[in-house]
Write a protein that binds this DNA or RNA. Structure first.
Length: 471
RNA sequence: GUCCCCAUCGUCUAGCCUGGCCUAGGACAUUGCCCUUUCAAGGCAGUAACACGGGUUCAAAUCCCGUUGGGGACACCA
């Protein structure tokens, strides 16, 4: 069997959409599993809507989620000659004809047909005119077969039968010389020897229009697979009003690329009850057979859960590295510069159980920077009251007696004080927590002290005493 | 309007192809309990679904037909 060749072919008319990432992902997974080739092709034949920024955004997004391509990126605008050549070939072999209908006329006729409740298709008026070399602006149309059926054996949906009589004579070359989508796709897929065309569900009805073009051109017809759409919570096609749809927006919101990949692949594909997969497992276990044929609702809650799982299970130093840009974005670049990577990784370990995104994590990490604890007003008012001052002072005195920090020794000392005072754990723990972190919620006190180090712990306790005494 | 696709807990899904192991499993979310110095995390338990109607069969979530509902496509956009 020949080598598997698949492609991802976005049009550069905006950011990279998460639906696009999922389509790319399924293709990529299949290519990697089969030892095949993954091609990136930019479909920019619509010059009015395509931008270079969008191409950059696509590349940036693909890189972020780690979907590397083996060939490309190819740009269709750079392959214009190829499309013309093949279009001429169709003209020569009688599979295409010149159409001199004006765009406005076509539009008017379409509207009219629609108003009458008819199918808004081309009436074929130039089909048999036999225009050899048009003297005016003309578009080239493909002579679509008018009888019979086209059966697509879809990788995901199985056999689908279309009546050819419903097919239109598509324009393949615009009057400005540029090819249209359905034609350039076929020429490229054929020339790039794509063996499996896997794309979104919305292209399903393009398939029976494209197959005759492959055939007319004398190219083998690839296998097709149509991925179900991603829907918003209201079951309408996912769009901005459902929240962020750009893949890079998720980076900014503190999602890990591996978590995005894991979520997106599970949205429509499954392997028994398994929820979490390493990339290696994904490549190994992926199968078209278990790709769902119905649309899926995008569930931000589950994505959040998966992200939390990845934050917990990824290596702390990697998480710390991904965190740095967000820390900088939050205005902490000064503080970040003064700490070591190792220390930051240590802080990550401290907070990773309680954060679901890296953006959350920024907030959790803040108290460990700087000499001073920054008190939340309510927290200080409640726990650093004059009543607690003597208690904190007693603890501080005991801690000061230790020449070095020891989690075990300090904790024992702490518990002993609680016992002697006949108070509840929380009566001492909460004031200490506020003194150390400025907040009422934090990781375990002694883990916090470990990260802070002896000097800063003592310093912050001292400041806590002062604040509690009414300072 | 025409054509095409789809239909299991609120959501993602397992099971469907190759009917009996399904009293329909898992996960997210949600509720309660446990753990606990706070917040989490974790553990345990609970609520919750085969869209509907006909067939076929000893037996249907699974096969067939219809209905309803949802989605998509019908451009000199991609």
């Amino acid at each position: 069997m020949s080598q598997v060749r698949v492609r991802f072919a976005p049009s550069p008319t905006g950011f990279l959409h998460i639906g696009g990432v999922r389509t790319a992902l399924f293709n990529w997974l299949f290519a990697r599993q089969q030892g095949g080739i993954f091609v990136l092709r930019i479909e920019d034949t619509d010059q009015s809507r395509s931008t270079d920024e969008s191409i950059q955004a696509i590349i940036e997004g693909m890189k972020w989620v780690g979907l590397d391509w083996d060939e490309g990126p190819f740009r269709q605008t750079e392959r214009k000659d190829l499309y013309c050549q093949h279009a001429m070939k169709l003209l020569e072999t009688g599979h295409a004809y010149w159409c001199v209908c004006k765009a406005e006329e076509l539009e008017a006729r379409r509207k009219e047909a629609e108003a009458k409740g008819l199918s808004p298709r081309y009436d074929g008026r130039c089909r048999n005119l036999g225009i050899a070399s048009p003297t005016e602006d003309a578009a080239l149309r493909f002579k679509a077969p008018q009888e019979g059926q086209i059966v697509v054996d879809d990788l995901i949906k199985g056999k689908i039968t279309f009546d050819t009589s419903a097919a239109d004579d598509l324009i393949i070359l615009r009057s400005n010389g540029y090819p249209t989508y359905n034609f350039s796709v076929v020429v490229d897929d054929a020339l790039m020897c794509i063996t499996h065309v896997v794309r979104g569900d919305d292209h399903l009805t393009n398939t029976p229009r494209q197959i005759p073009i492959f055939e007319a051109l004398g190219f083998p017809v690839p296998q097709f697979g149509h991925l179900p759409m991603i829907l918003g919570s209201d079951k309408a096609r996912l769009s901005k009003r459902h929240g962020a749809t750009s893949i890079m927006a998720y980076k900014d919101m503190g999602y890990l690329p591996e978590a995005m990949v894991n979520y997106l692949v599970r949205l429509g594909w499954s392997h028994g009850d398994q929820e979490l997969f390493t990339r290696r497992e994904l490549i190994e276990k992926f199968s078209w057979k278990h790709v769902q044929s119905s649309a899926a609702v995008f569930n931000p809650d589950k994505l959040l859960w998966i992200n939390a799982e990845y934050i917990k299970s990824s290596s702390p130093s990697e998480v710390a590295e991904a965190l740095v840009p967000l820390l900088n974005a939050a205005g902490l670049q000064e503080q970040v510069r003064t700490v070591s990577k190792e220390w930051l990784a240590q802080v990550v370990v401290l907070v990773k159980e309680r954060t679901k995104t890296l953006v959350d994590m920024v907030e959790w990490v803040k108290p460990y920077f700087g000499q001073e604890a920054i008190y939340e007003v309510e927290a200080a008012k409640k726990f650093l009251s004059p009543m607690t001052a003597p208690l904190l002072q007693k603890l501080l005195t005991r801690f000061e007696a230790f020449p070095r920090f020891s989690k075990q020794a300090w904790e024992e000392s702490f518990k002993k004080l609680v016992e002697e005072e006949g108070i509840k754990m929380g009566a001492l723990a909460q004031p200490v927590r506020v003194a150390l972190t400025g907040r009422t919620a934090s990781p375990g006190l002694f883990e916090v002290m470990e990260v802070l180090g002896r000097d800063r712990t003592l310093y912050r306790l001292q400041k806590g005493v002062e604040r509690a005494s009414g300072g």
